[in-house]
């Protein structure tokens, strides 16, 4: 019962915050709505018993990415008042609505094979074994580390003053 209530509250707040990101006129307020959306997604991870991912979501998205985005808004805010739309409003709305209809139809018509056992909790130790063991995902972890390094170097080179 508590889980159901938590899911509905999180879902409504997440959708409202996402609509706020798209439709708020003030860019800074849109960024704050995005932070609210990130926080509710972390709550949704908790209702899915993914505790480690919820903590990572708070740390990475709410802590780091939103700060980066707000910094970028602060540095570029005086050039453009508000967040105007281009002329593709109606076609984009049709594309998004059709895609949403197709996805909802497919999801509700498919008979998912729900597993009977309850999910693992806590997930931190099993995730570490999964990621770092020999038979696990150790090679993708190393590749992700290289990707992050390349992204840091690229960001520094691109954003540096000549």
């Amino acid at each position: 019962m508590g889980l159901t209530a938590a899911f509905w509250i999180m879902a409504v707040v997440a959708v409202v915050a996402a609509l706020g990101v798209v439709f708020l006129r003030n860019v800074f307020r849109a960024a704050l709505a995005l932070v609210l959306c990130f926080i509710t997604v972390a709550g949704l991870y908790i209702t899915l018993s993914a505790d480690f991912l919820a903590a990572v979501q708070i740390l990475v998205y709410v802590g780091a990415i939103s700060v980066l985005i707000i910094l970028a808004i602060m540095m570029t805010r005086e050039v453009q008042q508000g967040s105007p739309s281009n002329r593709m409003k109606l076609p984009a709305f049709i594309v998004a609505a059709v895609l949403l209809g197709i996805m909802i139809y497919t999801v509700t018509k498919t008979s998912w094979q729900i597993a009977a056992e309850s999910p693992l909790t806590p997930t931190t130790a099993p995730l570490a074994t999964k990621l770092f063991s020999e038979s696990g995902f150790i090679l993708p972890v190393e590749i992700a580390a290289m990707l992050i390094l390349a992204a840091i170097l690229g960001a520094i080179v691109i954003a540096r003053e000549k």
């Binding site: 996402a18 798209v22 909802i104």
Partner: peptide, 9 residues
Amino acid sequence: AVLFCIGLY
């Protein structure tokens, strides 16, 4: 799906 389509729009 709803969040994805809002983001896509």
